[in-house]
Measured scan of single mutants.
Amino acid sequence: GPGLTDLFKTEKAAVKKMAKAIMADPSKADDVYQKWADKGYTLTQLSDFLKSKTRGKYDRVYNGYMTYR
């Protein structure tokens, strides 16, 4: 089956995709945050998933999740 690194890459891609969806349409934020909360994502995990070469690119999404939880 898929190894943990593959799983991480898949999760990371999914999280980034959802983060971009929030940035494009902030009204989606609560739905996405709820999904992440259901998956039990911690802020540390989210921070790892949303690492970007562009500093602060996903800060709004991260901060939103922090206040959501």
Rank of each mutant, 00 (worst) to 15 (best):
L43R: 04
G40L: 04
D31T: 11
D59C: 11
S27T: 13
W36F: 03
G40W: 03
T54N: 09
M18T: 03
A13Q: 10
K57T: 05
D48N: 14
G56V: 04
W36A: 00
Q34W: 05
D30C: 15
K9N: 11
T44P: 09
S52Q: 05
Y62K: 13
L50H: 00
D6Q: 09
I22C: 05
A14E: 14
K51L: 09
R60K: 14
D48K: 15
S47V: 09
A37E: 06
D48W: 15
D59G: 06
D48Y: 15
D48M: 15
G40D: 04
Y33Q: 01
N63E: 13
E11A: 06
G56Q: 05
A13R: 15
Y33I: 01
A13G: 05
E11P: 03
Y65C: 01
G64R: 03
S52L: 04
Y58W: 09
F49E: 01
T54K: 12
K16D: 02
L46H: 00
Y68S: 03
S52F: 06
S52A: 05
E11F: 04
P2W: 03
T5F: 05
D30K: 12
P2Q: 13
A13L: 08
L4G: 12
D30Q: 12
T54H: 13
M66F: 08
N63L: 14
Y62N: 03
G3A: 13
K16T: 07
A24C: 13
D30E: 11
Y41A: 00
I22V: 12
Q34N: 06
T67W: 14
K12G: 07
K28T: 10
T5W: 04
K12N: 04
D6A: 08
D31S: 12
K28P: 01
P26D: 05
M23W: 03
Y68M: 03
F49L: 09
T44E: 12
Q34Y: 05
V61F: 02
Y68T: 03
R69P: 02
E11G: 03
L43P: 10
Y68K: 02
T44F: 09
K57L: 08
V32I: 14
Y58M: 03
K20N: 11
A19Y: 02
Q45A: 07
W36Q: 00
K28L: 14
Y65H: 00
F8K: 09
T54R: 11
K35L: 15
K39T: 07
T42P: 02
V32Q: 03
R55G: 10
D48R: 15
G56N: 08
S52E: 06
S47N: 10
R60V: 14
D31R: 10
Q45C: 05
S27A: 09
A14K: 13
L7I: 12
A24D: 11
A37M: 15
D6G: 06
F49K: 02
D59L: 12
Y62F: 15
F8A: 10
G40Y: 03
D25R: 03
A37H: 15
Q45E: 07
L46F: 02
K12M: 14
D59E: 11
K20D: 11
A21D: 08
G3Y: 06
Y68A: 02
K53V: 05
G3F: 07
L7D: 15
K12Y: 04
A19K: 00
M23C: 05
T67G: 07
D6C: 15
R69D: 03
R55Y: 10
M23F: 04
L4R: 09
A29Y: 02
R60I: 13
Q34S: 11
T67K: 15
R55K: 14
T5M: 09
L46N: 00
L4A: 13
T10N: 10
M23E: 03
A24E: 09
R60L: 13
L43V: 07
K28C: 14
V32S: 03
D48S: 15
T44G: 10
L46M: 10
T54Y: 09
K51F: 08
L50Q: 01
F8V: 09
Q45N: 08
D59I: 09
Y58F: 07
R69S: 07
T42S: 10
L46K: 00
K17G: 07
G3N: 13
S52M: 05
Y58E: 00
G64L: 03
L46P: 01
K17T: 07
A21I: 13
Y65W: 03
F8N: 07
